[in-house]
Computed example of a mutant assay.
Amino acid sequence: MDTKRPKKKKRKWLRITLIVVLLLLIGVGIYIYSVWNSLNNAVETMQQPIERETSKRDKTLSLNNKEPFSILMLGVDERDGDKGRSDTMIVVTVNPEKKSAKLLSIPRDTRTEIIGHGTTDKINHAYAFGGVAMAMDTVENFLDIPIDYYMQINMEGFQDIVNAVGGVTVNNDLDFTYEGVHFKKGTLTLNGEDALKFSRMRYDDPRGDFGRQLRQRMIIEAVVKKGASLNSLTNFHNIFEALGKNIKTDITFDEMVDIQANYKSAANNIEQLTITGTGQTINKVWYLIVDASEKTKIQNTLKEHLNIK
Rank of each mutant, 00 (worst) to 15 (best):
N268Q: 14
A128S: 11
H237T: 10
Q260G: 12
N171Q: 14
F142G: 02
V21W: 02
F176W: 01
L14D: 08
D148Q: 06
V257H: 03
A101H: 07
E221I: 05
V162S: 14
I19R: 01
N300W: 11
K122Q: 11
T276R: 10
A222H: 12
L25C: 10
K122S: 08
T3S: 06
D77N: 08
G192W: 00
I106H: 02
Q280C: 08
L306R: 12
F129Y: 13
L103E: 01
T249F: 03
V165R: 13
V76K: 02
L22S: 09
L288V: 14
G167N: 15
I220V: 15
E78P: 03
K264Q: 15
T301L: 14
M218F: 00
I114T: 04
Q272C: 06
Q260P: 00
L196A: 15
Q47V: 01
S70P: 01
D77W: 06
E255V: 02
K245Y: 01
V162K: 14
R5N: 05
W36Q: 10
D175E: 12
Y203G: 05
T120Y: 04
N163F: 01
M46G: 01
Q48D: 09
Y178H: 15
R212Y: 10
L188F: 09
G157S: 11
P206D: 11
K102V: 01
V285W: 13
T281Q: 14
K99Q: 06
I239N: 04
G192F: 00
D80F: 04
D194R: 11
I239D: 02
I239C: 02
A292Q: 15
V162H: 10
E255R: 02
S105V: 03
V94D: 00
A128P: 07
K197T: 04
T274I: 08
G277C: 06
L63Q: 08
N40C: 10
F176R: 07
G84P: 09
L188I: 03
T54R: 15
K4I: 10
K295D: 08
E156P: 08
M155P: 00
T119M: 04
G279D: 14
R202T: 05
V168P: 00
Y287W: 11
R85L: 12
V92A: 10
I114H: 09
G81K: 11
L104Q: 07
I71Y: 13
L63E: 09
G27V: 04
K59P: 03
D109L: 06
S34I: 01
L18A: 15
A266Q: 03
T88I: 03
N163M: 06
K59L: 05
A133V: 02
S199W: 01
I308M: 15
K264V: 12
G279C: 14
M256L: 14
R85F: 07
A222W: 02
G116L: 06
I289F: 03
G211T: 07
M218P: 00
Q280W: 05
N238M: 05
K197V: 09
M155F: 07
R217L: 13
I298Y: 13
G211H: 08
Q280M: 09
T17H: 00
G131C: 12
L230Q: 04
V76F: 03
T3R: 07
S62L: 03
K56Q: 05
